[in-house]
Design a protein around this nucleic acid. Structure first.
Lengths: 144, 144
DNA sequence: ATGAGAATGGGAATGATTCTCAATACTTTG
DNA sequence: CAAAGTATTGAGAATCATTCCCATTCTCAT
């Protein structure tokens, strides 16, 4: 389904509206293709006050449209929900905090999934998802 | 090597001391066997002021003895470094924030490692490590 | 012992994020 | 189309985990 239509419907189903600012946020995240921190979202953009950005990101998250990624550098980052973009992982730079998306081969992903399901059941966890990140130094930080 | 000796040496090598409070923190984390938040570390313990706990956890992290785990609930958590405890993963409850350790089968771990190494190289990342977490609802939260 | 540097702890400061609330914008109803 | 009802906005205040400050205390080497 088309992105904005999906967004509008999900918000509507809980009595929320798909306002200009919300659409704008969705577009920013869609275009970025990687999790963005709030400063990165707001920087250099007119008419996008912090408080509105935070509030709307929270609304969009509550509607299941975006996901908040906790990273090590103290800034939360935001990306479109996997239901919209597909399952993927992250490459994170431990020095500068930069995050980029990463896909792993489907067979490995499947095997991982199967194994983790079993482990979660053994631990009596209702598993929702897994998170696999690579943490290292990006090209820029690594050469320093 | 014995835990406290290792700790003392690593601190000494950068001109730091293995004081009573630091030893205490290492013992708390070793005994817990799972990442603890600062409130959990301090709660109910005498003579362990917040500021000292934070400061010393940071020192121990700088010495490579403990690791800080960013979790979704806003509290950082601390655990012994993998060099001391061995590589492992986490089961995290997305409702209550509880975190417990998780081991995955060695063959899968090896395959994961190999694949991620290749992917990191392709992305020009100097990989240090990977992080694999299961995020779901623990028994207590899942039945609510 | 004594001096130098490390550590302590109480409280102030920081800073990302959340909350408040009066003003504004949609939406629906009459 | 107007009015009422509700959601949204944005500027600043408030929150709260974490970090910083600094006078005092401790430790180790001489």
């Amino acid at each position: 389904m088309e992105l904005h239509q999906e967004a509008a419907e999900r918000l509507a189903s809980s009595g929320r509206r798909y306002t200009r600012t919300r659409r704008r946020l969705v577009e920013i995240l869609a275009k970025a293709g990687m999790p963005l921190s709030l400063p990165a979202i707001v920087r250099g953009r007119k008419n996008l006050p912090q408080s509105s950005a935070y509030r709307n990101l929270a609304e969009l998250e509550a509607a299941g449209l975006i996901r908040r990624v906790a990273s090590e550098d103290g800034f939360a980052r935001y990306e479109l929900a996997e239901e919209l973009t597909g399952h993927h992982h992250h490459l994170m730079c431990s020095r500068c905090g930069q995050v980029q998306d990463l896909l792993i081969p489907a067979p490995l992903e499947r095997r991982l999934d199967r194994t983790l399901d079993v482990l979660a059941r053994e631990a009596a966890f209702d598993t929702v998802r897994h998170r696999l990140d690579l943490i290292g130094l990006c090209r820029a930080c690594g050469s320093t």
